[in-house]
């Protein structure tokens, strides 16, 4: 039983791992280089950087983390994690990109506070009357009022 066990998890090997490392280093070089090129907009640059990062992440998970040869269930578990992270980001973006009245951006720290209309100024308007009572106030209540 133990023999079969050790056989079973023997995939990859130094050659494959070293090749993976070289690929990862090359991709790192590319991503640094790409950051000096303007691809049109900030978000385009970010998208390219994230694409390269994801390629690196896939290489790490397939070869270093053995997902390529491992039981499929582990890959499914890993994929589920990223899928739900994707759901989280997607729905947040649906909201934030479609706000009718987005929060003001880049406002200086000490912006002058907006004047409050007098009718809403708590210092000018009298406090609302307490609710009329039908029941005679009990002891503690009488004190408070």
């Amino acid at each position: 039983m133990s023999h079969g066990h050790s056989e079973k998890h023997h995939h990859g090997g130094p050659v494959v791992y070293t090749a993976t490392l070289i690929a990862l280093l090359i991709l790192t070089g590319i991503t640094v280089g790409a950051s000096y090129i303007n691809f049109g907009s900030n978000s385009a640059n970010i998208a390219i950087a994230l694409t390269i990062a994801s390629m690196k992440a896939i290489l790490v998970s397939l070869f270093f983390m053995h997902l390529l040869w491992d039981k499929k269930v582990n890959a499914i578990i890993a994929a589920t994690g990223f899928l739900f992270l994707g759901i989280f980001i997607t729905f947040d973006l649906i909201d934030l990109n479609n706000r009718r009245d987005p929060t003001p951006r880049n406002v200086p720290v000490m912006a002058t506070p907006t004047a409050v209309p007098e009718s809403m100024n708590p210092q000018l308007t009298p406090a609302p009357k307490p609710y009329p009572k039908k029941v005679a106030p009990v002891e503690g209540e009488a004190e408070k009022e």
Binding site: T31, N42, I46, L50
Partner: peptide, 23 residues
Amino acid sequence: FGLYWHIVDMIWIYLFPLYYLIS
């Protein structure tokens, strides 16, 4: 532990371009 170490590496793979290579 290998799996743990690789996921820590993987997080850095994303942190690096997002922080150091914005423009």
